[in-house]
Computed example of a mutant assay.
Amino acid sequence: MHQLLDVTEVAKILKVNRNKVYDLIKHGHLRALKLGRLKVSTIELEDFMIRNSGKDLSDFENVKELEVV
């Protein structure tokens, strides 16, 4: 079943702080909708993880492939 998650829930799933989630949304890497507060669908969150698998998101303005050392 698909659900809407608030920013705190998304942050817990991604294991980052809420500000990082807001930055992902602000820079267009994660799509959200506003129903009172910002929400992210579980479909979008799953798609985000697939789209960004193997990428380095340290700099949202310069996303690149992850370099394995």
Rank of each mutant, 00 (worst) to 15 (best):
I13R: 13
L38M: 09
E61I: 08
S41F: 02
L66V: 02
N19F: 03
R37K: 12
G54M: 10
K20L: 12
N19P: 01
V21P: 00
L30W: 03
L14I: 07
S41K: 04
V40G: 01
V10Q: 00
I50R: 13
D23G: 09
L45A: 06
K26F: 14
D59R: 15
H2E: 12
K64Q: 14
F48W: 02
K15F: 03
F48M: 04
V21R: 00
E65S: 09
Y22W: 12
K20E: 08
I13H: 07
V68F: 13
L66E: 10
V7Q: 02
G28M: 09
N17L: 02
R31P: 00
R31T: 07
L33C: 11
R51Y: 07
H2D: 11
A32C: 10
E9S: 14
G54K: 08
K26Y: 14
L4G: 02
N17K: 10
T8I: 10
R37C: 04
E46R: 08
F48Y: 07
N52T: 09
H2R: 08
I43V: 11
I50L: 11
D6Q: 11
L33K: 13
E67Q: 10
F48C: 01
S53V: 12
A32R: 00
L57H: 00
K34E: 13
K12L: 08
F60T: 07
I43C: 08
V21A: 01
L4P: 02
D47T: 14
N19M: 03
K15A: 12
I25H: 03
I50S: 04
F48A: 03
L57T: 06
T8D: 13
V68L: 14
L66N: 05
L4F: 15
D47H: 12
K15D: 15
L35R: 15
L33R: 15
R37V: 10
V40P: 00
L5R: 09
K20A: 12
I50P: 00
R37A: 10
N52V: 05
G54A: 06
K20I: 13
K34G: 02
V40L: 04
V7R: 01
K55I: 07
Y22K: 05
L14G: 08
H2W: 02
M1W: 06
E65V: 09
F48R: 00
Q3E: 13
R31A: 08
I43K: 15
H29A: 05
E65D: 15
L57V: 06
S41H: 05
E9F: 02
D56A: 03
S58F: 06
L30P: 01
L35A: 12
A11T: 06
S53Y: 09
I43Q: 14
V40Y: 01
L66A: 09
E67S: 10
F60R: 01
D47V: 10
L35H: 14
I13V: 14
V69F: 06
K34M: 09
V10E: 01
D59A: 09
T42H: 05
L35C: 07
V7C: 07
K12P: 00
H2F: 06
L38W: 12
I25G: 04
K26T: 10
E44K: 03
N52G: 08
N62L: 09
L30S: 02
H2L: 09
V68C: 08
K26H: 14
I50W: 04
R51H: 13
I50Q: 06
V69Q: 04
V40F: 07
H27I: 08
H29T: 11
L30Y: 00
V10R: 00
V10L: 04
L5H: 12
L57K: 01
R37I: 04
V7L: 14
S58M: 03
